[in-house]
């Protein structure tokens, strides 16, 4: 895998240069300036639920960036509304891709928040363990990926994921999931959802970098993971997670 990865880096530089119709380079885009050494990174993701406003920009960006089929989403936003009657209302219309229309609930909302969800890129991941053909694997940078050339679309991983982040792509009949925009992060860019978040509720970074924001947050702030009782060791961390969140 190491050989394949380092070989790819050289190829990417060429394909990234945007060219005009006459072949002349016009933009000197940022991604050209950073070609990372792939093996020197270990990524993590932080979601600050106290900042999320539920605008849905992340879900829209993910759909555009990764061309996910209609009705499927690699990331989505859930709305939680807890009323004074003790009810917890959870909804996510179309994954929050068109933001959230106001919703009438019984009683007064005493506590409300949005929780963006995505693949947790677990270290002890159930999805790769159940794959009968080893199509699901963990990259050296800590990103869980699916090799679509190997995947037979049996759907075991879709059932095994406790976070419901996988789906079978109806076009290719193979498993698909959030890759933390692997094609972007390997070029030194942040995932699309992080790039477009207007309140910086989504933070992505490299744990091996000393000044990385995710490392600082995980080291100094009180962070939580989803379903810790399952011992999946997610590398997607949450700030301000409520007990109502499942």
């Amino acid at each position: 895998m190491k050989m394949a990865a380092s070989g790819m880096a050289g190829m990417l530089i060429v394909t990234l240069i945007p060219k005009s119709s006459s072949g002349q380079r016009i933009h000197n885009i940022e991604e050209m300036k950073h070609v990372p050494d792939w093996m020197d990174h270990y990524y993590a993701y932080v979601v600050d639920t106290t900042k999320c406003i539920g605008c849905g920009a992340c879900a829209r960006a993910c759909k555009r960036e990764n061309d996910t089929p209609d009705g499927y989403s690699r990331t989505w936003v859930e709305r939680y509304q807890i009323t004074d009657t003790g009810h917890v209302y959870i909804d996510s219309p179309d994954g929050g891709i068109n933001s959230f229309p106001p919703k009438d609930v019984e009683g007064n909302v005493i506590k409300g928040f949005f929780v963006p969800k995505l693949c947790n890129h677990c270290r002890n991941t159930p999805c790769t363990q159940v794959c009968p053909v080893n199509a699901s694997y963990e990259s050296p940078q800590g990103v869980v990926l699916v090799d679509k050339k190997v995947c037979i679309g049996c759907g075991y991983c879709v059932q095994a994921c406790p976070y419901d982040t996988r789906y079978i792509d109806p076009r290719t009949h193979t498993a698909d999931k959030c890759t933390w925009c692997y094609h972007r992060v390997t070029k030194g860019l942040a995932p699309a959802c992080v790039t477009v978040c207007p309140t910086k509720a989504r933070i992505f970074g490299d744990l091996k970098m000393k000044n990385s924001q995710v490392r600082e947050i995980i080291d100094n702030q009180r962070v939580m993971v989803l379903k810790p009782e399952l011992n999946t060791e997610p590398y997607c961390f949450y700030i301000g997670l409520d007990r109502a969140v499942r």
Partner: peptide, 20 residues
């Protein structure tokens, strides 16, 4: 197709600020 070889769609503000 390798997951890393896909083209990036979102360019980020730096792309715009190169010219603007």
């Amino acid at each position: 197709m390798e997951a890393s070889s896909l083209a990036t769609i979102h360019k980020g503000d730096d792309y715009c600020l190169d010219c603007h």
